[in-house]
Amino acid sequence: MSEEMRIIETKPLDSVKYCLVGMPDTGLTGMIAVSQIVESMKLPEIGHIESDLLPPVMVIHDGVPKFPIRLFGDSNLTVLTSETPIGTIAIEPLSRSLTAWAIEKKVEILVSVSGIAVQNRMEIEIPQVFGVATNEKGKKLLKEAEIQVLEEGFMVGPHAMIVKESLSKGLTNIVLLAQSHSGYPDPGAAASAINAVNKLLNLEVDVKKLLEDAEDIRVKTRELMQRTNKSFEGMAKTQEQELPAMYG
């Protein structure tokens, strides 16, 4: 585990079957999706991440100060999410620590949930979800779950670095990318992402409440979205929307 980024387990687990990651990113899709999964499955808090590379932020819930990046779940499913954007400087150490922790806990599949910006999102009723896998096992799982593979494109942000670290460590990492608004919170995209997670990990998380609460979520996550958009400025996030330089 990276010394710069420490995963602290307040309720230690010997092993973890599946690990889901959803950070503030495009359309806050991943964060909204995994937060809904935590709430719906009533997953308990089991740890957090400490690092000098993270902003000096603590959040207060029900009068209790909390670390902004926290772990929830049990030995079947652990979820990592954050209530603050991860700055460029912290992404690589976080990805190193997370993948090392996943190997230590014998995680079978590490699933990152995120959004992929599409220009015509306003016209899309039900966003489609695309998948990227780091190995043949992951590709087979995507195929079984009928999730279309992203054939060409760029990934920028925490999920891109998790892919990089998973490739070098031989870890099965699947990235689920739901078509999203680029700069607006997108609960609709998060609902599509949850449906893909359901198929991939055999869960039964209902998205009805998420869709009912979508407009309130959009109002209440404006400032996190604004801060996340600001954090993208240092990481060439717009490259995700560039056409690939194909000449072969």
Binding site: Y184, P185, V219, R222, E223, M225, Q226
Partner: peptide, 12 residues
Amino acid sequence: MWDSSTGRLEPL
């Protein structure tokens, strides 16, 4: 992105 005195929110 808000002003509690006027009850207004600023949109993204």
